[in-house]
């Protein structure tokens, strides 16, 4: 079952199309990263999912309910943390938690206390006096203490220094072991979320480029170096090959549809007598390749 499902979701701001015919599915229990460069449409997508914005066309379902009809019952099961959210900054951390608590029947006081200790939040300090990292932790705490079924994090790491970012990720990793929830986290940097996620959706210019488990993604991406095997005059990038470059006897490309022995057999046919160096890629390398390919408009087929 998909906790999030969009159907040709589109949002325009005047002539600008921020999100275009997005068909995103996030299965229950997964931790999905919504990745993309700045301005790709991540925040707009999340706001559409939270019914903070209305779609220009298409629709979305969250927890099986059309987002236009999200109400008290659904929001009691959703945690949303965003860098842009206007928190009641005049409240102390304790007042903030005291204010949020009565709205949730499932609020877990023991978990609240545990997270308070874990995040080392000063309960008597006003939110406006907290550092950005602390503020995000307070918002996260107020979104975790009721054990939501769905946690949506919009650029939670943006602007955090590396130490605080590490603490934040560590905190998320720890609490993620305590509940059976689905997480959708947006970021423009794969490093932030690499350790957290088991699924990646890549969005660029409002269009969803890929959406699949990290394992499958890493399984089908390979950096390939081919030495010899062709004089280069008739060498061309095949479908699904990105960053294709040839220099003398050396051909380099990124294969996006690596299928083990079958792919290698195909390459041996295209490059007879060549030697191959086939390396798996990290998620960061995959992300950078995709972002760079889209930015330069380079050919290479769909990823």
């Amino acid at each position: 079952m998909n906790v999030i499902q969009t159907h040709d979701l589109t949002r325009r701001y005047g002539a600008t199309e921020a999100v275009h015919a997005l068909n995103l599915a996030v299965p229950a229990g997964s931790v999905c990263a919504l990745l993309g460069p700045n301005g790709a449409g991540k925040t707009t997508t999340l706001k559409l999912l939270m019914n903070l914005l209305r779609p220009t066309a298409g629709r979305a379902e969250v927890l099986g309910v059309d987002t236009a009809k999200l109400g008290e019952r659904e929001f009691a099961q959703i945690g949303y943390v965003s860098e842009n959210q206007q928190l009641p900054l005049w409240m102390t951390v304790q007042q903030f938690l005291d204010y949020c608590r009565p709205f949730y029947a499932t609020w877990d006081r023991a978990l609240e206390q545990q997270l308070l200790a874990q995040f080392q939040l000063p309960v008597d300090r006003r939110l406006q006096q907290l550092s950005r990292g602390m503020l995000m932790k307070a918002a996260l705490l107020a979104s975790l203490a009721y054990r939501p079924r769905l946690l949506v994090l919009d650029e939670p790491f943006s602007g955090l220094d590396p130490l605080v970012r590490e603490e934040f990720v560590h905190g998320l990793l720890e609490v993620s072991t305590q509940g059976d929830w689905t997480v959708l986290v947006s970021s423009h940097d794969i490093d932030d979320v690499e350790r957290l996620v088991d699924r990646i959706a890549f969005i660029d210019a409002g269009r969803l480029r890929l959406n699949e488990p990290t394992e499958a993604l890493q399984g089908r991406f390979r950096r390939v170096e081919v030495t010899g095997g062709s004089d280069g005059t008739d060498a061309r990038a095949a479908a699904g090959e990105l960053e294709w470059a040839r220099s003398g006897q050396l051909t380099r490309f990124v294969a996006t549809a690596y299928a083990g022995e079958a792919s290698e057999r195909d390459w041996r046919t295209r490059f007879p007598g060549a030697t191959f160096n086939i390396q798996p890629m990290s998620l960061r390398e995959v992300f950078v390749t995709l972002a760079r390919t889209r930015a330069t408009g380079a050919p290479g087929g769909a990823a």
């Binding site: 903070l52 109400g71 008290e72 959210q85 206007q86």
Partner: peptide, 16 residues
């Protein structure tokens, strides 16, 4: 608890 923007805290909470 504002009504004109898309970043208000209450709108993603179970507050009818």
């Amino acid at each position: 608890d504002g009504l004109c923007g898309a970043n208000e805290f209450w709108r993603t909470r179970p507050i009818a």
